[in-house]
Computed example of a mutant assay.
Amino acid sequence: MSASILRPALVLGLLSAVGPFAIDMFLPAMPDIGASLGTSASVMQGTITSYFLAFGLAQLIYGPWADQAGRRLPIYVGLLIFMIGSLVCTFAPSATMLIVGRFIQGLGGAAVMVVPRAIIRDLHTGHEATRLMAAIMLVISISPFLAPLAGAGLMYLAGWRAIFAVLAAAALISLVITRTLLPETLPPSARQPVSLAAMRTGMLKLLRHRSFLALTFLGGFGLASFFVFIAQASFVYSQAFGLTPTQFSLAFALNAVGFFASSQFAAKLGMRYGAMPVMVRASTGFGLATLILLGIGISGHASLPVVMAGLFCANACLGLVIPTAMVMALEEHGEIAGLASSLGGTLQMLAGGLMVALSAPFFDGSVLPMLGAIAVCGTMTLLLARVVASTAPRTAQA
């Protein structure tokens, strides 16, 4: 990996991992937190939905702000807000206050998701941008391996509140990293003043751009499958399969291996076969894998090894889809990369949060409702890939 990719990948990857850590460290503790606060699994899923809702809406602010003020200031403010939310969660006396704290966390965590995407667009385009995105995802991949185990260990040693105290400390460390290692990538001459008129014009342009919307929601429903898994897996794995928090953490990490391993091949495969064919075929593989897994669940044969193997295959396909779709969605919108990144991120988070909210009433602690919701996401991803392919110029499909 060249130096032009390695350093920004490490810095942006570590910053971008703050949000996933806020989710993944929390997962093994969800059943215990629910019991501690005297609340139900459906209410605990609300802590996931509130985080994603705030995470999505806040991106509409950070993107345009990053186009006006540069990339670093919004990151500073976002990390401070995230730290405050983490402290609220640390001392939350009730499930309601925990949900509020998670909402504040989401408001801050959005900054270290949307702004790094715009920084990628500042530095590179095309296959180089895909390489950098994939490298960042490789750094982020430490989250599903270390965060759940760290969360389970902290819960065992000091109780679940220690998880959020550590997240507050992580935000402080991220502020230091931003101050010392992240240069400003948007020169003053390229900055655009924020105005409601300009935002409205830019948003209307993006919302009328069929390919942008299709690519955004394609990635959104792919991510939504993760959100459903995140919201429900800890309860399914503990109640239906009888796993301990540590065992769940290991199972969760294994399910993420396929995604992050395959994402490292996205740029190379795109250069060799074309980004569009890779994305369409990978989306097809993801959709079919989720439908097959649902069929196995309906037949009553969805054991833990089968579920883990099926999700591994599905996520391996998805690892080729997400970085490619994100880069392709921004490719034609360099002049409003911050706004495009924020609007795309908002739409994706809202799609994910909506899927979690819609699937929650059907959740009964068994594996079938989770597989059904994931299959819906897979089907939507498959269909949207076909829409993107049908609207792309013939040269882009080669």
Rank of each mutant, 00 (worst) to 15 (best):
S4G: 14
L6H: 11
R7Y: 14
P8G: 03
A9G: 14
V18W: 04
G19T: 11
P20V: 00
A22F: 00
I23A: 07
D24E: 12
M30P: 05
A35P: 07
T39A: 13
M44F: 00
M44L: 14
T49E: 07
A54D: 00
F55L: 10
A58D: 00
I61K: 02
P64F: 08
W65T: 12
L73R: 15
F91S: 15
G101C: 06
Q105Y: 04
A118R: 02
I120D: 06
G126R: 06
E128L: 13
R131M: 01
A134Q: 08
M137V: 04
S143K: 09
A152I: 05
I173G: 07
L182C: 04
P187R: 10
A190S: 14
L204T: 11
V228E: 00
A233D: 10
V236F: 13
G242L: 03
L243Y: 15
Q247R: 15
A253K: 12
A253G: 15
A267L: 07
R272G: 13
T284E: 06
G287K: 01
I298M: 12
G300Q: 02
G300K: 01
P305H: 09
L311D: 03
F312I: 01
L318Y: 02
M326R: 08
A329F: 10
S342E: 14
A351G: 08
A357C: 00
A360T: 15
D364P: 10
V376H: 11
C377M: 09
G378H: 01
V387E: 09
P393K: 15
A398Q: 15
A398M: 12
